[in-house]
Design a protein around this nucleic acid. Structure first.
Length: 878
DNA sequence: ATTGGCACGC
DNA sequence: GACGTACGTGCCAATG
């Protein structure tokens, strides 16, 4: 096999990566984006090219031999940002772990090292590939030498062989030097010939081939000004050529043999990846990481309890039950543990199940329990007939409140963030994917469960201290913790489903879908998978020659907004749109829901994720009951399958009217907006009046529609681009709308300005209940990244405060329902809406109770308003 | 097993 | 001068 040498322009690639990627940093606060980009590129190159030799060349120091020729060389360049320069040492460390040689040479640039090495290697018959982001390197392309330039970011490369260059630029690689000599180079501060740009330079080179030859035939050049310029700047031209020429005779002290690459050391590299926080790249490495490399944990003692005795409990106990998979409604419990001052105790589930002493302790409000995921523990114990009380700390919720943007809120990750290493990850203990299982040896998992519980016990104080420092302890103890119990109860209660209704709807849908599928294929003139955008694209845009509206990364976009623009151009379009809609209903809502119905009770039990969203909202999974269709009648009918669990009960729904805009009126203290809500005006009409400066009866439906979209934008923090997409107008018009809105509500404008300022100063924004969201991107130099952070700063207090308020209402409502001995039960929360099931004879009382509780959940400068309704199914509660 | 495209809700 | 644009969950197809 022939040898293959990869020469990488280290500085150039690092720069590219740095500017292409957001400013990531690892858990130690060190910036790593350039190193990350460099790493992904290396992995890709190694995999695709399978090189036998590799070298990464770096620039050395500030001055080079070129500065002797021209002191102003590379003058006027922006200083390397410190966020990047601090990454170079990490980069060298990374290359060492890759076992890739790197080299720099005093007085020379990386280009010269690469040029010299490329010459030597190609003379030896080695195939050479140069990798850079700098076009200057193209001059090196030759018989055995190919140059790859990064394109758009760093993920993609364009290959320039000698032939490609000659074909595309119509000059030889070496003439690139002459080109630069004539036209100069702004970035390197190479002057070139004044008045000669790319066009003129190419024309001259086509005729005369080189700078030298141009000057030999200077008298032939008749264009007066050009001739004059060439004459005046002759010296500049020759100096520029010298500067632009890569030195292929640099005094390098390395040989091709030194650059031999034998693959990376998986262990070393994985250690470096872990240090840098490149978790996602770990599984891209070849080979297994040696288990010996893992630092052995310190020994831990624990006692396996075969019969529970009250003496093991103290006043404060960390308590944990372990399950293997996520669904705690159905999953088998593996084991439990208690950790306190007295010791570490492992409790087998059967012991726990049969113990009256345990039940008494768990249900005793005065016995304090520290847990990880109070909601999960509540549901698990409830399955054993135990009503958990006295939970005073939840590590999951506390960690989430400290920083919602951390995406791993499991015990080992939290522990590591707080510097506690004595616990393995679940993956290390149980494996992953199909291989996931409880170890056959008891101690292996018993120890793991104990260690996790030890962490809960150990971290309680640390995390609580952080919450106290942030003035967020109340948010945990008065809001999220009580809410966890309410949610646990809702999940465990579940929602009853009319299975037959779903089945009937399903068969009707299948029928219509197969007819539609046939019609679509007929219109397309061929059989294909209608569900595949990849197959559909070519049919629409090549075979049927419909105009291409939008492209995706991989091909033509066939998304609904694209299809809508094509409506009327071909009969296939409307059928496709309908097919997509119905397919969604069938697969996600009919088949999806049927799959998760409990066979015995005909109920479904969702799980609310209370520690996920960046704004403080809940999310719902398995199934997601927060996105059941409502907008289109056909989909809305799915709601007919959601029924009360008992005869003679009703489904009851209560939703906040415009809670986000009311919150905005409150926190921005906008007189005009507050007035509108105090007078219970139609807010979109009011906005239209204020934005378009018209009276109420002059507001057209179109004006109201546009005002509604602007309000939508305010609530969700969308950009002018997003608004333009929603309204089908230009970005400029959208921006005008937003500006006019802000002129109409000056206090809102002021608030938006202040909250961005606050985020810049503090690094985070807060909600009414002092929930935080950190926004490190707010200082980004990248316009888009920064703009996004700014919109987030404006939007999160609004959406997050609304989330706080409904959470408060849920806690209060749940308490009231209990105290008043009503049977009505909370079932679901859909962001601004609560769904209950209610006995017929309680309807009147519940209606009053729910409305007042929600409206009085918190006192704002504007009233909160709730609309409520009920019916025999969720569909009818409208 | 993971990714990309698409569609549903607020 | 170009970036890529509210947040979630889940389905299907295509790919490694």
């Amino acid at each position: 096999m022939s040898n293959k040498l990869i020469l990488i322009d280290g500085n150039s690639i690092a720069y590219r990566a740095f500017f292409a990627l957001p400013l990531l940093n690892n858990d130690k606060g060190v910036y790593t984006n350039a190193v990350y980009g460099f790493t992904t590129m290396l992995l890709k190159i190694i995999e695709e090219e399978k090189p036998t030799h590799v070298l990464v060349a770096f620039d050395a120091g500030k001055t080079t031999f070129r500065h002797n020729t021209y002191t102003e060389y590379k003058g006027g360049r922006q200083k390397t940002p410190s966020e990047l320069s601090e990454q170079f040492p990490l980069l060298r460390e990374l290359l060492d772990a890759f076992q890739i040689k790197h080299y720099q040479l005093e007085n020379y640039e990386a280009d010269d090292i690469i040029g010299t090495m490329a010459r030597i290697a190609s003379d030896d018959g080695v195939q050479v590939k140069v990798i850079s982001g700098d076009k200057d390197l193209l001059q090196l392309a030759g018989d055995n030498i190919e140059v790859n330039l990064t394109k758009k970011g760093i993920s993609e490369m364009v290959v320039y062989s000698k032939e490609v260059i000659e074909q595309e630029m119509e000059i030889t690689p070496l003439q690139i030097i002459d080109l630069k000599a004539l036209m100069g180079d702004q970035s390197d501060n190479i002057p070139g010939v004044r008045g000669v740009g790319e066009k003129t330079a190419l024309k001259l080179l086509k005729q005369y081939a080189s700078v030298e030859n141009i000057y030999e035939h200077l008298d032939e050049i008749t264009a007066k000004k050009l001739n004059e310029n060439l004459t005046t700047y002759k010296e500049d031209a020759f100096m520029s050529k010298e500067l632009a020429t890569i030195n292929q005779e640099s005094p390098i002290e390395i040989t091709v043999e030194d650059l031999k690459y034998d693959g990376y050391d998986t262990n070393k590299l994985s250690t470096v990846f872990k240090e840098l926080g490149f978790q996602s790249l770990l599984n891209k490495l070849d080979g297994e990481v040696d288990v010996e490399e893992e630092v052995a944990l310190k020994e831990i003692n624990y006692e396996v309890i075969s019969e529970l005795d009250e003496s093991i409990f103290t006043g404060e106990n960390a308590f944990h039950i372990e399950i293997l998979d996520e669904n705690y409604h159905t999953e088998e419990m593996i084991g439990a543990s208690i950790v306190n001052k007295n010791g570490n105790y492992y409790i087998p589930i059967d012991v726990l199940e049969d113990s009256a002493i345990f039940k008494k302790w768990a249900e005793d409000d005065t016995k304090e329990k520290y847990v990880f995921d109070a909601k999960k523990m509540t549901v698990l114990l409830r399955r054993l007939g135990i009503d958990l009380k006295g939970v005073t700390f939840d590590l999951l919720l506390a960690s989430y409140l400290v920083n919602p943007s951390e995406n791993n809120h499991d015990i080992p990750s939290i522990s590591h963030r707080f510097g506690e290493k004595e616990v393995k990850t679940d993956e290390e203990v149980y494996g992953k994917g199909a291989k996931k299982a409880v170890p056959s040896e008891n101690v292996l998992y018993e120890e793991h469960i104990i260690r996790k519980t030890v962490m809960i016990h150990l971290l309680k104080q640390q995390v609580e201290d952080e919450l106290i420092a942030n003035k967020q302890l109340e948010l945990l103890t008065e809001l999220e913790l009580p809410l966890a119990l309410v949610l646990g109860k809702m999940e465990a209660t579940g929602v009853k489903i009319d299975k037959d209704r779903l089945l009937t709807m399903g068969s009707e849908l299948s029928e219509r879908l197969s007819v539609l599928e046939e019609e679509i294929q007929e219109l397309a003139g061929e059989a294909f998978n209608v569900n595949s955008p990849k197959q559909l694209g070519p049919i629409l845009f090549e075979k049927l020659e419909l105009p291409v509206v939008k492209k995706t990364k991989t091909g033509y976009s066939t998304a609904a907004d694209v299809l809508e623009q094509l409506e009327g151009k071909h009969p296939i379009i409307e059928k496709l749109l309908l097919y997509r809609q119905l397919k969604k209903l069938d697969s996600t809502y009919i088949a999806g829901l049927l799959r998760v119905i409990d066979e015995d009770t005909l109920k479904i039990h969702t799980r609310f994720n209370q520690a996920l969203t960046q704004t403080g909202r809940l999310s719902s999974i398995d199934p997601n009951l927060q996105n059941i269709p409502i907008r289109i009648e056909e989909g809305r009918k799915i709601r007919q399958a959601f029924i009360p669990s008992e005869q003679g009960w009703k489904i009851f729904a209560a939703d906040y009217s415009q809670i986000e805009l009311r919150v905005l009126a409150h926190i921005a203290k906008d007189e005009k907006l507050q007035q509108a809500f105090k007078q219970d005006k139609d807010i979109h009409t009011q906005t239209a009046m204020d934005v378009f400066h018209v009276s109420e009866d002059e507001v057209t439906s179109n004006m109201r529609r546009q005002a509604k979209a602007v309000n939508f934008g305010i609530v969700y923090g969308i950009s002018d681009y997003g608004l333009s997409q929603n309204l089908g107008i230009t970005r400029k018009e959208a921006k005008q709308f937003i500006d006019r809105y802000l002129e109409s509500y000056p206090a809102v404008k002021e608030y938006m300005k202040d909250v961005v300022q606050e985020a810049k100063q503090d690094g985070f924004v807060t909600t009414i209940m002092n929930r935080r969201r950190y926004l490190p991107d707010i200082t980004s130099r990248n316009f888009n990244v920064r703009s996004f952070a700014e919109r987030t700063a404006m939007n999160t207090p609004i959406q997050g405060s609304a989330a706080d308020i409904i959470k408060l209402a849920m806690i209060q409502l749940s308490k009231q329902l209990e105290e008043s001995d009503l049977q009505a039960r909370l079932l679901l929360q859909v962001h601004d809406e609560l769904i209950l099931e209610v006995p017929e004879n309680e309807l009147e009382e519940v209606e009053k109770l729910v409305a007042t509780t929600m409206e009085q959940a918190i006192e704002l400068d504007v009233p909160l308003k709730v609309d409520a309704s009920y019916g025999d199914t969720w569909y009818d509660a409208k």
